[in-house]
């Protein structure tokens, strides 16, 4: 019953959040602020993780593919497929669920316990819409860009590490990352990335918005936002993959 209660309350909150804004200009400004807050501020961690993960995937692939029947360009191919299909969209989104999701839940939760959300309501502002709508739209908008950067840096990291460690040659790697490329896979990756952006922001906002109590509860809301956000990303990943690859 508790599960259904939360689902119902989540969708009711989203219905309120996606209602007509009181003043579009203020919301547009807030949207760009959130794009910066969610997206630009996450670039550092995404850069570091993607670059090194791309390098590690390349080295692991190179030293795992020991059969003389498998050409070395398979290293580049494996890195590209891993980065585009799974690592950048899913793993980076899981990392963002921790960084961005925790941040959103604690921000909105703190606003709730310090009566700032009540203050918005008293002013006649739809607090759900003002606080949640720009965040969710910013998450859906900016996440694909972050993931595109992650894909590029991961593949570039693989090149640098692969060549530097002698795991493969520059020619083989570049040939590998171009081999058997199917553009629809990029579409699949960006689609699921946009969905994950919506999940990260809306689930975190839901937990923050319904925080009750004090500082301890704000911490619990942040934890729940990360845990449920991550689980929903994995479930959505499975469903979207099933739809794209099987049907």
């Amino acid at each position: 019953m508790g599960f259904l209660y939360h689902i119902g309350r989540y969708f009711l909150l989203m219905k309120r959040a996606f209602s007509k804004p009181e003043k579009l200009k203020v919301y547009v400004k807030q949207f760009f602020f959130e794009v910066d807050n969610i997206g630009v501020s996450s670039l550092g961690i995404i850069t570091i993780i993607s670059f090194f993960m791309g390098g590690v995937i390349t080295i692991q692939a190179a030293f795992s593919l020991t059969s003389p029947l498998i050409p070395l360009y398979a290293v580049g191919f494996t890195t590209r497929e891993s980065m585009i299909l799974e690592f950048s969209p899913t793993i980076i989104s899981l990392i963002l669920a921790g960084k961005v999701g925790g941040n959103i839940a604690s921000e909105i939760g703190s606003m709730r316990i310090s009566e700032q959300i009540d203050a918005l309501e008293i002013m006649g502002v739809n607090s759900a819409s003002f606080l949640i709508l720009p965040k969710v739209l910013a998450g859906i908008f900016i996440n694909p860009f972050l993931i595109a950067i992650s894909m590029f840096l991961g593949i570039f990291g693989g090149y640098v590490m692969g060549v530097a460690t002698g795991a493969c040659t520059s020619y083989e790697y570049i040939f590998g990352i171009q081999a058997f490329f199917m553009p629809w896979k990029l579409g699949y990756a960006f689609f699921k990335t946009a969905v994950f952006g919506g999940i990260i922001t809306s689930v975190a906002a839901y937990h923050g918005y319904y925080t009750e109590g004090g500082a301890l509860e704000v911490g619990k809301s942040s934890t729940k936002a990360v845990v449920y956000g991550s689980i929903l990303i994995l479930v959505a990943n499975f469903i979207i993959t099933q739809i794209f690859f099987v049907t």
Binding site: S114, E115, Q116, A119, E121, I122, G124
Partner: peptide
């Protein structure tokens, strides 16, 4: 509520 102003116990200013 646009006709209502409220002073909250803790101020509730936006941080």
């Amino acid at each position: 509520r646009k006709d209502i102003g409220m002073l909250f116990q803790g101020g509730a200013l936006f941080d």
